[in-house]
Design a binder for these strands. Structure first.
Lengths: 219, 219
DNA sequence: TCATGTGAACCGGTTCACAGCC
DNA sequence: GGCTGTGAACCGGTTCACATGA
């Protein structure tokens, strides 16, 4: 009988795993087969101990004196991070930022697809932008069910972000990537991830001014 | 004799302070003068204890039974976070994402100004986009000195991100906001802040799938 | 000998809990 | 009574250091 361990992945760790994966892919493309924790650590900006701890945590194992099998480790990370079937994403708000998001994700990964965009402007509704059809925000509910949409990317102006978020929750979306500079109040089962460009720039400026001896990974 | 305390602001705390500031401004706009830690906490998604600790850390003080003076607290946060003079920023890479960044920051804050953009495409070089002149990346060094540029926003494709970052460091920029999915290796005096849209979406997807009882603030 | 696996120590940040004050 | 200010406890995440194994 197999006991499925409830391994806990923290956001920070997820970021590192993602970085490891990227670097492992590059490593393998260079026809290297095995990798040591200190090598992967140097590339990813982490300590060897950190790498070993992460690898241990996800239940992968290397061998002393020969390091980790790059392919196997890559695969294990994939099993852990990649969804079982492609995630279907809605873009909410087709301004400049929204378009950049469309461009950024179009065809980038087989695991994530933006399948619909929503806006209120009659110039956009009905058009196809970057290969994605744009609907009126009123249609979110209907389209979300029809197209089995899982997640939403909020790229609308801050003042309407909360109302759009509520609409998204009502439509049954399970997670939101929020670019609007506003704290979203949503039911606890909906996961929100905030990306605030203004705050990010503020951080760079602040820590560039005052020194920081702190390691950075992802904003 | 005044001893200037070396108060340490962590990235997480900076994010919270930024959120407090936003909410305080709104609060004041509604003509409310005083605010309790539990009120600010509820708005910002933080515990009252956290708010009190933060306020204490930045050396501001309220009064029992009357809470904090909203205006005073707002001002104190401003003193701490805002640069003494406007920060001059260069945009490196004028693709869709770059344009979104230009749009996002144009006229948003008196404290941060994107003063120049750089690209390699002859279609863009020489043009003025969103009110910002676009130069060839070769001119970064010259323009950085001439225009006293402090920070850079990297919005170029991942394969060239490292070389652009190095160029930026050579040009004397003190901090980088990096949108490229690549770990930048730069001298320690240059602060890098990473914003990786793919990883952010991965995070949303992962934590929407598996539950997380973890508090989120900024990606 | 050199790298992994891992219990234990460590560290920074968060929360508790209560004294002090309006 | 209810809030702030804050030492102390707590907690999760990181690093150390060493036993183990190729």
């Amino acid at each position: 009988m197999i006991v499925e361990a409830r391994l806990m992945v923290s956001p920070r760790m997820l970021e590192r795993l993602s970085a490891y994966r990227r670097l492992l892919a590059k490593w393998i493309a260079e026809k290297r087969e095995r990798i040591y924790s200190h090598e992967l650590g140097a590339l990813a900006g982490a300590t060897p101990a950190q790498v070993r701890r992460d690898v241990m945590t996800i239940g992968f194992t290397g061998s002393p004196a020969r390091g980790y099998d790059a392919t196997g480790l890559l695969q294990r990370i994939g099993e852990l991070l990649d969804p079982q079937e492609p995630v279907r994403v809605a873009l909410l708000g087709v301004g400049f930022l929204g378009r950049a998001v469309l461009d950024y994700f179009s065809g980038r990964s087989p695991n994530y697809a933006i399948v619909a965009a929503f806006d209120v402007s009659s110039e956009k509704v009905g058009r196809v932008i970057h290969g994605v059809r744009c609907y009126h925000i009123e249609e979110l509910d209907e389209q979300a069910r029809e197209q089995a949409i899982d997640l939403g990317v909020i790229a609308v102006p801050a003042p309407v972000a909360q109302s759009v978020a509520e609409r998204a929750c009502r439509a049954g979306l399970r997670g939101l990537l929020n670019f609007a500079p506003a704290k979203l109040h949503v039911p606890p089962e909906v996961h929100v991830e905030n990306v605030d460009l203004a705050v990010s720039l503020e951080k760079v400026a602040f820590f560039a001014r005052h020194g920081s001896r702190r390691r950075e990974v992802q904003s």
